[in-house]
């Protein structure tokens, strides 16, 4: 079946079989290697995408599930101002990651900041449960997200003032 959806801001169509997982389709058909199909159970966070702005594990989405929806991967998100806020916030906090969970942590931060401009430490840690990783230092993670939130808020304020 042909499934049409919006991928990283562009209209795309894919001839997909019912059993194709979105994670694999993004990697193999669209070359978006930032998505990694690791556990295939929706628990490791390495395949996370934004589906209509919400964090979702793409390994648990058959391609047909995104018909008519908007999908953003880390590649698409990396072109945004929010991405820059998050990277800078993480750097300010000195957040070090293992290199495998970065995309998940960035998108989880993006999804959270979309709902909550100033998330609490508890809210941040709950959101990061979507990307469990042994490299996570909870305190620095919280600082990184809060720093990103601050940068995003200031950028919006500057824009509003112009």
């Amino acid at each position: 079946m042909t499934i049409s959806f919006i991928l990283n801001g562009e209209d795309v169509s894919l001839n997909a079989r019912s059993y194709d997982r979105l994670a694999d389709a993004l990697r193999e058909h669209f070359g978006l290697l930032g998505v990694k199909a690791d556990c295939r159970r929706g628990v490791c966070g390495k395949c996370l995408i934004l589906l209509d702005g919400r964090l979702a594990p793409s390994c648990l989405l058959p391609v047909f599930r995104v018909r008519g929806r908007e999908v953003i991967t880390i590649e698409g998100f990396s072109q945004t101002d929010e991405f820059a806020d998050i990277m800078k916030g993480f750097a300010e906090a000195g957040l070090e990651t293992c290199g495998f969970c970065d995309s998940g942590k960035i998108l989880a931060t993006a999804a959270l900041l979309e709902r909550q401009a100033r998330p609490s430490a508890r809210e941040i840690l709950e959101e990061m449960a979507s990307v469990p990783c042994r490299c996570t230092d909870p305190e620095t993670m919280v600082k990184g997200v809060q720093a990103a939130a601050e940068l995003k808020a200031r950028r919006h304020y500057r824009r509003a003032s112009q």
Binding site: Y19, D20, R21, A37, C39, R41, G42, C59, L60, F64
Partner: peptide, 21 residues
């Protein structure tokens, strides 16, 4: 679909012959 797919770890999603989304 979380209940259907969560217990599966093969590359392909094992689905019944007829699915209503």
């Amino acid at each position: 679909g979380t209940e259907i797919l969560r217990g599966q770890s093969e590359p392909y999603a094992r689905l019944p012959p007829e699915v209503i989304s």
